[in-house]
């Protein structure tokens, strides 16, 4: 069981409101990712669920029981911290055993569980080392090991991969996803990296300034962003958002089109522009194109190699059925609209 319901949860530090009233349902076994720019309140929200901070108002219900005022240890949750927060004076074994020891479990059972966790996380060779003698990835695994031995109702991850280098991050991402497949335990994962969110989540919660902007599966967010913020935040590279005339052609205040949904041509198209920077990756070509239709360069992605370079003239055409329309409040409008002229 690992249902977590937040009801009208609010958090303020003095006069500074971090999270205005917020409701959220997390179902058992879900992998939920809180994503948003730094300062959006995602870590605070996680800490509220963990019990490391008090809510200013509202209720936190875990598995049907009101946990709002329960101390962290009584909530049945385990957390993996950004800095790993390993106990530097204890060996890997003692680190992983610590929560079990605190729970007063008997020695044999502790050893059994620690050995099992160490084995599944490939830590058996390091079991007697101190955290200081481990690499970043190994420390991360110890932190995860310490979380899984408790068999918690849910795991909380606070930007766990942000201290790892890029290559390791991809590997750990897979490991955490596999762990979720295997354990089928609820996981709440905080990150500012939308790629992590898209690749790992069953459900993404996009936060801005303590407000939930949208909740949905990765594909839902990609296909139907509820507003310009989500549209700009989800997807890489970012969606091009244009106002003014171009938007008006779609009867919208803002029109958006993703870089991968723009047709490129050197001959003709809707928007004429000049290539400012071209990035040739082989598998893809990213172009940053200056065009009179928008005051910032437009980003375009072409599959495979597209042989143009800085200074070349290109023509861009948004795919009409992939255009997103937003009203003057930034909210998504139904349908794709119809380009006039």
């Amino acid at each position: 069981m690992g249902q977590i319901h937040l009801e009208k949860v609010r958090k303020a530090f003095g006069d500074v409101v971090i999270i205005p009233e917020l409701d959220l349902q997390i179902e058992d076994g879900e992998f939920v990712v809180f994503v948003g720019p730094s300062g959006c309140g995602k870590s605070t929200l996680l800490r509220l669920i963990a019990g490391l901070e008090d809510v200013t108002g509202g209720k936190i219900v875990i598995d049907g029981k009101d946990a709002t005022t329960l101390p962290p240890a009584k909530r049945g949750l385990a957390m993996v911290f950004q800095s790993y927060a390993l106990y530097p004076h204890m060996s890997v074994r003692k680190n992983i055993a610590f929560p079990l020891k605190m729970a007063g479990m008997d020695k044999a059972e502790i050893d059994k569980r620690v050995d099992y966790a160490a084995k599944t996380l490939n830590l058996d060779n390091y079991i007697d080392r101190r955290p200081g003698q481990l690499s970043g990835g190994q420390r991360q695994r110890v932190a995860i090991g310490r979380a899984i031995v408790r068999e918690p109702e849910a795991f909380l991850f606070d930007e766990p991969l942000s201290n790892l280098d890029a290559a390791l991050r991809v590997g750990m991402r897979l490991e955490i996803s596999e762990l979720h497949q295997r354990l089928k335990t609820t996981m709440i994962y905080v990150t500012h990296d939308q790629v992590e969110a898209m690749t790992m989540a069953d459900k993404i919660v996009v936060l801005r300034a303590g407000n939930i902007e949208q909740v949905g599966s990765p594909l839902e967010l990609y296909l139907h962003p509820r507003n310009t913020f989500v549209a700009g935040f989800i997807g890489s590279p970012k969606m091009n958002l244009l106002g003014g005339n171009e938007a008006a052609k779609y009867q919208a205040a803002t029109m958006g089109v993703r870089p991968e949904h723009i047709r490129l041509s050197t001959a003709d198209g809707a928007w004429k522009g000049t290539v400012k920077v071209s990035e040739h990756l082989g598998s893809d070509t990213f172009l940053h194109v200056e065009s009179p239709v928008h005051d910032e360069p437009l980003t375009v992605r072409a599959g495979g190699e597209f042989p143009v370079h800085a200074g070349d003239v290109v023509y861009l055409t948004p795919e009409p059925d992939k255009v997103h329309r937003f009203d003057d409040k930034g909210l998504a409008m139904k349908g794709n609209g119809r380009a006039i002229g």
């Binding site: 530090f13 019990g51 490391l52 901070e53 008090d54 101390p71």
Partner: peptide, 8 residues
């Protein structure tokens, strides 16, 4: 920055 419990 902590809970009421730790604060008291």
């Amino acid at each position: 920055m902590a809970t009421l419990h730790t604060k008291s």
